[in-house]
Amino acid sequence: MRKNLRVAAYAICVRDGQLLLARSPASHGGFEWVLPGGGMEHGEDPYDTVVREVEEETGYLVEPTGLLGVDSSRRVVPDRFGRSVDHHGVRLVYEARITGGDLRYESHGSTDMAAWHPLDAVATLTRVSLVDKGLSLWRERPAAGRIQSAGT
């Protein structure tokens, strides 16, 4: 079985009780909200990745102010030829503050919209699990940089 490792960096940007999210097409159709961020390019530092990705997806310039933690996921998925791939995702979650830029939508990218959402309304959105994990890291600030899930 082919193995695939993807390292990515994401931002938790909270301002005035609102969380910045980007909207991405869902694999099952429709859309889901995601943390702004994405995959590292070869040779790129994760700090630089999150700065670049947030600007690409939202138009904002950010300063990462702290590494909140790391989320790791592993699953077997089919590749485009129907063969199985052992996919391991490592996602670094930073807290970041907006330092400039203006909210705009990404064109010709992995997201099509960016918006601020009240923190108390995030639970009502169709979203990827990393949004909840990132918010837990932001709220709890665990010393080990990871949220313990049931069974681990």
Score class of each variant (00 low, 15 high):
L67P: 03
V50A: 11
S149T: 10
A11Y: 06
L21F: 03
W33K: 01
T126L: 12
D16S: 15
A121L: 13
V62M: 08
P46I: 06
H42L: 09
I147P: 04
L119A: 08
R104Q: 05
A143C: 02
E140D: 14
K3W: 08
E63N: 07
L67T: 04
E140S: 04
H117P: 00
A123R: 07
R2S: 12
D48C: 06
A9C: 03
Y10N: 11
E32M: 06
L103I: 06
H88N: 03
T124M: 10
V51R: 15
D71K: 03
E53I: 09
D102Q: 14
V128K: 05
R127W: 09
D102C: 11
E32C: 05
L125N: 04
F31P: 00
L125T: 05
D16F: 03
R146C: 09
T49E: 03
H28L: 12
G134S: 11
V54K: 13
R75F: 01
G43Q: 02
R139L: 06
V93G: 07
D79I: 07
H108Q: 06
W33E: 06
G109L: 05
D112C: 15
V51M: 05
R80Y: 04
V62K: 12
V93F: 08
L103Q: 10
Y94E: 02
R91K: 14
H87M: 14
S129Q: 11
S149R: 12
R15N: 10
G109V: 02
G43V: 02
V34W: 14
Y47F: 15
E95P: 09
T152Q: 14
A143Y: 00
N4L: 15
E32H: 13
S107C: 06
S84C: 01
Y60N: 00
